[in-house]
Amino acid sequence: MAPGYYTPAFMKPAPFDYHQARSVAEAVAHLGEYGYEAKILAGGQSLVPAMNFRLARPAVLVDINPLDELDYLEEDGDTLRIGAMVRHVTFERPVTEGPTGRLLAMAAHHVGHLPIRVRGTFGGSLAHADPAAEWCVIALLLDAELATRSPSGGRDIPAADFFQTVFTTALEPEELLVEARLPNLAPHTRIGFQQFSRRAGDFALTMAAVALEADDGPVANARIALGGVSDRPVRAGEAEQALEGQPATDESFRAAAEIAAQEFDAIGDIHGSADYRRDLVRALTRRALEQAIST
């Protein structure tokens, strides 16, 4: 028998049952009941296109848009607590004084376009885990802790453990991401954010976010996070180490960028090969470091 096939293209979602959660507890209860069959609907700016294509076809959609209890920003000592339902647009102007707020604002302007930013959410973006998503890269850069709730309670997951592969996180099917905790960068930290995309508003082919301290002496606490180069956002650990204690000069930035470019088995797709993505890492990392030191 010859192979059988079905039609390849869809543009309307497959049927699903819809539940509007009125509390986190209710949302979590739905997840507990439906497990893998359910999907959380936050801003929907990535999920709904995938559903329209029928690439995602959850049997149950749990809408958490009504949950004002997840729409908050709080400074808690040295930590910025971001409720999962805070919309991207909120970050266009710094939400906190100092480098953390500025970094979030720099990145926010690259998140899609205005109509995407007014709907899409911080938590939704993290849970979706696109390897080229700005918030995923920033969360990793800042060593964020991601707090969840589930029928059995909840837990805090370090960003480094949260992102597993393309569109895949450590979240269990019955687990809801409720909050991201971003340790604030020290006030004198310098930051840089660079990305390259084919068109304005597109997901970046590659992006580099950096933070470092280098007031009057050598580089300290260097952090480099990259997006779009691997199957998840990554920290360029070897490049960070290479920078540590070095003078903040063109040469050391160039050397660190070169290390970052070689650190990963880069991914390729129709917009650029793995080699090309390494070239982008090299250029964007260096530029982000230069940007950090010059502003």
Binding site: A2, P3, G4, Y5, M11, R54
Partner: peptide, 18 residues
């Protein structure tokens, strides 16, 4: 409806000898 038309199209099975 357009949605149901896609549901129906999805159930048509085509056997093809490549």
């Amino acid at each position: 409806t357009p949605e149901e038309a896609e549901d129906a199209a999805e159930q048509v099975f085509v056997e093809i000898e490549p």
